[in-house]
Design a protein around this nucleic acid. Sequence first.
DNA 1: CGGCCTAATTGGCAAAGTGCCAATTCGTGC
DNA 2: GCACGAATTGGCACTTTGCCAATTAGGCCG
Lengths: 226, 226
Amino acid sequence: MSATSPGPRWQRLEHDERRRQILACARRLFSERNYASVSTSEIAAEAGVARGLLHHYFGTKRELYLEVVRSMMRTPSNPVPRRLNDAPRRKDDIEPEIADSVDRWLTMLERNRGTWLAAIGGRGLGHDPEVEAILDEAREHAADRLIESLQTYDPAQAPPALRASVRAYGGFAEAASLEWLQRGRLTREQTQELLVQGFLTIVRDVVPAVEAIPAADTARTAHARR
Amino acid sequence: MSATSPGPRWQRLEHDERRRQILACARRLFSERNYASVSTSEIAAEAGVARGLLHHYFGTKRELYLEVVRSMMRTPSNPVPRRLNDAPRRKDDIEPEIADSVDRWLTMLERNRGTWLAAIGGRGLGHDPEVEAILDEAREHAADRLIESLQTYDPAQAPPALRASVRAYGGFAEAASLEWLQRGRLTREQTQELLVQGFLTIVRDVVPAVEAIPAADTARTAHARR
DNA sequence: CGGCCTAATTGGCAAAGTGCCAATTCGTGC
DNA sequence: GCACGAATTGGCACTTTGCCAATTAGGCCG
């Protein structure tokens, strides 16, 4: 702060290093708030550089943002089995490998929790709590209706694990519908079959297996007695 | 433009009607491009009103945007069974009702294709092709690895329906993981079971049923028609 | 050791966008 | 027909973004 010291007013960094530093700051800010409410001045201040420098390195605010999205996507979004060794086997014999790959993937999620939630959770970068809340409410409502149709639980008192499973099926249904409407890799008839059979097997076979596992016993699940 | 005609320079509309008109214009623009690249001036021009009027009706650009999101969410995101009539029945007996509800839901999707794709497709409003492309590439890559692990097809030559089903499972996995990491309705053990059993039943039981249905003859058949 | 030379970095300017409010204009009711 | 209220406009102040010329750090060569 003392203007008497004749030291350099700013430090010169190597190209890649400065770039990484700015990117890291932008990444943190974009993870917390949505695109529009993060200003380039703010990112520059966070990185301790002049605003013009961002443009020198990334061109425009949008390009910087896209770079952030790319860096986030380095962490996978699905369980990805490690290359299976040796001989081909029957499909119904792959359970151990799948279980293993899912396990490794979940461990990865636990470690990169923050990053993954910022990238995938909250639907794409630019984390926008209000928009999220609106979408979530609609999905939760759909889940209620689906639970109702099972005629086993009152939606308000269904075990959290069941509700979560139904929400997972919702993700399944949305993705399948996109494949039909947007990418055309499914016909309508195939989509229908996928959704119906998917629902039945999940409800009939998968959910009971999940419910057999002890639930988290936090306050939230207290009312959903074992 | 002729200043000679003494007619009113602008027309006065009833509160709700003007509001709906502006909302419709905003909705169209926000469906086509992302939030930041749509300006309030543009929306106002589209609606044929002064920019200040938007603020009179909606406060800020962001509030207008949130209103658009809400209006989009009136169309459901999941198949929602109609209230099941009469007596309770066993879970394994509900297939007809589920099939029916899925069918009605798919019909609704066909009718509201544009709206639904804008709201759900591309993950949330603010349709951003570049961001979408980045996320899609990551998910497609994960699907490749998953297909590899089945040791039945080379990922590059897998039938579109299989690839689509795997992508649907990806949606399932992401939603389940959010339930664990974000909402805490699943324990890690439950998530593991859900993902493993979900994968096995989908691959073992659902995919074969889907593949038994004739595929679209060309890759983009369904996609190409408007 | 000292000046030069390149490239990193800054600071400021112009254009565009947003929020807001006072002034204006339409239309209805008295 | 006139006044009053609500709808609508237009413009002002402020923030943000994109850009570029000027400045300065710090390595290199003599």
